Computed example of a mutant assay.
Amino acid sequence: MTDDKASHDLTPERLAYVERVADYWQAGGLGHAAGAILGYLSVCEPAAQTQAEIASALGLSAGTVSTQLRNLAGVEMVEKVRRMGVRTHFYQLPQDMWVRLIGSEDRRIAGLRELADMGADVMPATRHDRIVSLDQMVRFFEHEWPLLSKRLEEFLRKEES
């Protein structure tokens, strides 16, 4: 990221936050640029920014930002929005994106169940743990996730009241 950030309302504290988010997601395999975009879209004003504004604020190339926005939109972590009378697209974090992202875990658990079941049909002769541990983990989350999800809903309801 470049020193051009002051013109984009990135205070030193906000910049530190953007960097921390970028580092977090990079460690998780998403990539530094994607994480920086998530961090920036979490604290920028206004909340919706153009691709060019994001690239300029973060000192990233237009191609990098375009690719990462497409990837983030594909996993519903960023959404493209339009403004009446403006041809340019704007990008923002969807409303309550973090809650919705966690809520979509049901689909991932179901997908892992399918993989575990298919793996059981082709169990390798050695190191069964490669499939068995997947099945164990899926069984755990199949049991625990609905309970945790219900607790999250209750927590959020209390937070809103």
Rank of each mutant, 00 (worst) to 15 (best):
C44M: 01
C44D: 05
C44F: 10
E45F: 15
E45D: 14
P46T: 10
A47L: 10
A48N: 03
A48D: 14
A48S: 13
A48V: 02
Q49M: 13
Q49T: 04
Q49V: 00
Q49G: 04
T50R: 08
T50A: 06
T50H: 14
Q51P: 15
Q51H: 13
Q51T: 09
Q51W: 04
A52K: 04
A52P: 12
A52F: 12
A52D: 09
A52L: 06
E53S: 08
E53P: 09
E53I: 00
E53C: 06
I54E: 02
I54L: 11
I54P: 00
A55T: 05
A55I: 00
S56T: 14
S56A: 15
S56N: 09
S56H: 04
A57R: 08
A57K: 10
A57Y: 11
A57S: 13
G59M: 15
G59P: 05
G59C: 13
G59Q: 10
G59D: 14
L60P: 01
L60M: 06
L60Q: 03
S61P: 07
A62M: 11
A62G: 11
A62C: 13
G63Q: 12
G63W: 12
T64N: 09
T64Y: 00
V65L: 03
S66F: 13
S66W: 10
T67L: 09
Q68T: 01
Q68E: 05
Q68S: 00
Q68N: 01
Q68W: 03
L69H: 03
L69T: 11
L69Y: 11
R70F: 09
R70M: 05
R70L: 12
R70E: 13
R70D: 08
N71P: 02
N71Q: 12
N71S: 14
N71D: 11
L72F: 07
L72D: 06
L72P: 08
L72V: 03
A73P: 01
A73R: 05
A73G: 13
G74T: 15
G74I: 06
G74E: 04
G74Y: 15
G74V: 08
G74K: 14
V75K: 03
V75P: 10
V75A: 09
V75T: 14
E76W: 10
E76R: 12
M77R: 05
V78W: 00
V78E: 01
V78M: 07
V78Q: 10
E79K: 04
E79D: 11
E79M: 11
K80M: 11
K80T: 07
K80F: 06
K80L: 11
V81G: 02
V81T: 04
V81R: 02
V81Q: 02
V81C: 07
R82P: 00
R82K: 12
R83Y: 05
R83I: 02
R83E: 03
R83C: 01
G85A: 10
G85M: 07
G85Y: 13
V86L: 14
V86K: 08
R87A: 14
R87F: 08
R87S: 12
R87D: 10
T88A: 15
T88H: 09
H89S: 12
H89G: 05
H89M: 05
H89L: 02
